[in-house]
Design a protein around this nucleic acid. Structure first.
Lengths: 242, 242
DNA sequence: CGTGGCTTTGAGACAGTTCAAACTTCGTGG
DNA sequence: CCACGAAGTTTGAACTGTCTCAAAGCCACG
């Protein structure tokens, strides 16, 4: 039996803006179930028109696009609290893939109810737009990293961003957060080769700024990391959760 | 006196999905005026919290982010029909700049009415989310171009995309569209140097695929251009206009 | 204890950058 | 009407950050 939204394990984090009671009951009807999946399982595929939306509750995933010849661009790392499939939800067409990296628990929503949401819950509709705009803001930053920054700057930017996101999810413990990805995933996110990504990470390790081994990222100096990554804007202190 | 939405010069293009009468009258109240600006005029600035949203009616602009040292990433080319400032509209914070390249005419909306839109016009709210998701889809494609494609592939991708957009705005005439930007703008959009962008354009000219001079782009073979740019998805045949 | 998946290291290659300068166009002012 | 400067494009040539190729090392798992 799936958890009721009012007992959702993550929605009480200070990061997520509170919901009213009517919103909460609507979300409970909007939610059609929970899904637990194995590592490396596809969640949504490019070209598909999925009848479902998801919110990640637990675990880590990837959003990416593939070129015909196999080149892969990772668009973002999917962490708990992230909404998955909004694009297919409103545009009836996915143009990227989403898959799990670790095992994951997902909240499943019925896309057909999306219209009810827009008609009866303007605040939730607003939140959806907020989330979409926020995703857009992030991709703009990523574009700037890949397009303009050096490999070292890009890697610092990415690690700082991820560290801050996990920190606001209270997943940090003594300057360290889980980061169960491969170096290849980061390389594909930043448009760098695996080899060069590896050497750049080695540099950060030597300089005692950040160390990423065995699925954990330890950041000795988050401010140095943010500076080196030319991080400009702060993450919002509060955001809606779907 | 500004034009009423029902007489809007672009909304009757087949590209834009039709609006109902109530929607149309709401839009006329949502719209607070029109603005005509000179070339190279800032429209919205990073960090600002503008009380306004805009829709481009006429003219060309740029969306971009700046790094402290002056490096610039162009996020997108602003064409007629594009909504400007949704990010500030919902998130109260711009993280990029928008400015005109040519002289422009903009439709001006009052951000305070955004809430009325969400409360009373669910279809328009849905459209807003659609637009935001569409922007996100585009940035994902741009990320893939910059991160994974060669300079030649990227340039072809960008020119093909722009050509198709202007074509669907009926701004094409015998395989040619207006493109009043500098090579530097394209270079900054693709994360390439000006020199290399110039040489890549020269190659396309020699190969008789596309020629961009004196503010016009002429495409001899749009299919070849799309192939060379590894363009994957089609632009939607119909989209909402704000 | 062998095999597959991932990380690490070394070294040569090259796509794209940087530097520099010439060329074109166009508006401005003497 | 010509000289001048500013803005953009084009070309050449040297340089370099990052890539590709190659191989070794590490570790978990069957």
């Amino acid at each position: 039996m799936s958890i009721k939204c009012r007992f959702c394990p993550i929605r009480n984090l200070p990061l997520f803006s509170p919901m009213t009671d009517p919103e909460l009951s609507f979300m409970e009807s909007f939610k059609v179930g929970e899904m637990t999946i194995q590592p490396n399982t596809p969640i949504l595929s490019a070209g598909a028109n999925s009848p479902q939306l998801f919110t990640a509750l637990k675990g880590f995933g990837l959003r990416y696009k593939l070129l015909e010849d196999g080149r892969r661009q990772v668009l973002s790392f999917v962490l708990p609290g992230d909404l998955i499939g909004l694009q297919a939800g409103v545009m009836n067409q996915m143009t990227h893939n989403v898959e799990s990296t670790t095992s994951m628990t997902l909240c499943v929503f019925n896309r057909n109810e999306l219209w009810t949401l827009f008609r009866n819950h303007p605040q939730r509709a607003y939140d959806l737009t907020w989330i979409s705009a926020s995703e857009e803001r992030f991709l703009g930053e990523a574009l700037t990293a890949i397009g303009q920054k050096s490999a070292l700057e890009s890697v610092c930017w990415a690690l700082a961003r991820i560290y801050r996101r996990l920190e606001s999810l209270h997943m940090d413990e003594r300057r360290s957060v889980p980061l169960p990805y491969r170096q290849q995933d980061l390389a594909d996110a930043l448009g760098l080769s695996l080899v060069h990504t590896n050497k750049t990470l080695a540099k950060l390790r030597e300089q005692q700024v950040a160390t990423w081994t065995e699925g954990r990222l330890t950041v000795n100096d988050i401010f140095a990391l943010e500076d080196m990554g030319l991080v400009d804007s702060q993450l919002p202190q509060s955001r809606p959760l779907m």
